[in-house]
């Protein structure tokens, strides 16, 4: 039996609305919705989709929604999955963005944000080390992340250029290792 559009929509709405902390935090909830509850795919298929959504450019959660929706019900399925996934977060952020300015000047809010800002820096810095391990950074290749960080931070090179150059280097390297 073909999954209903409204079931796909509802599943991704829940995933989008109830996870805080970004796309990867959605994995367990997605697994419960897609594999355990609805049985739309097997465990292994789900893991393959996770790996592929990470490998593709863009927002991980949206890639997962696209792939799941598309494989279940084609383009329409992809569309309802994406809209479901981002609807609640977008409304939430819009309301915040609209009213943030009005209470931004409030001295209490100001104190809270003085505490928050260094925390945000730490929250961005911490995954660097986890990701370095996952990307298998070692003595032979540590120059790549170090060089990219310095190029962006000290020399103001656009991160887009760095990704492009890295992809090009990777391609050349794959040609060399294949021929040898």
């Amino acid at each position: 039996m073909q999954p209903k559009y409204c079931d796909i929509f509802w599943s991704f709405l829940k995933v989008g609305a109830f996870t805080v902390g970004g796309g990867y935090a959605m994995i367990p909830l997605m697994q419960r919705e897609l594999v355990t509850k609805h049985g739309w795919m097997g465990e292994e298929e789900f893991m393959d989709q996770v790996a592929l959504s990470q490998a593709m450019p863009g927002v991980f959660a949206v890639n997962m929604a696209t792939m799941t929706g598309y494989r279940l019900r084609g383009k329409g399925g992809a569309a309802v999955a994406i809209v479901g996934n981002v609807l609640v977060p977008i409304v939430f952020i819009l309301l915040l963005a609209m009213f943030f300015r009005t209470f931004r000047e409030n001295p209490i809010v100001d104190r809270i944000f003085m505490g928050l800002r260094p925390a945000v820096v730490a929250l961005i810095a911490a995954p660097v080390f986890t990701m370095a391990r996952n990307a298998k950074v070692g003595w032979s290749n540590v120059w790549i992340p170090v060089a990219s960080a310095l190029l962006i931070w000290l020399f103001g090179v656009s991160p887009i250029v760095v990704v492009l150059v890295a992809a090009l280097l990777g391609y050349i390297y794959s040609l060399i290792t294949r021929n040898s």
Binding site: I124, A135, V146, I152, V162, R178
Partner: peptide, 29 residues
């Protein structure tokens, strides 16, 4: 997904991404 050329390319991009995020954190300091 096991295509070696795609895998090598992604490996290098992933290394650069580690640097990218480090730069984002440094930029916030």
């Amino acid at each position: 997904k096991e295509e070696p050329r795609v895998a090598t390319l992604m490996k290098v991009v992933r290394l650069a991404v580690v640097g990218l995020i480090a730069a984002a954190a440094l930029g916030l300091v």
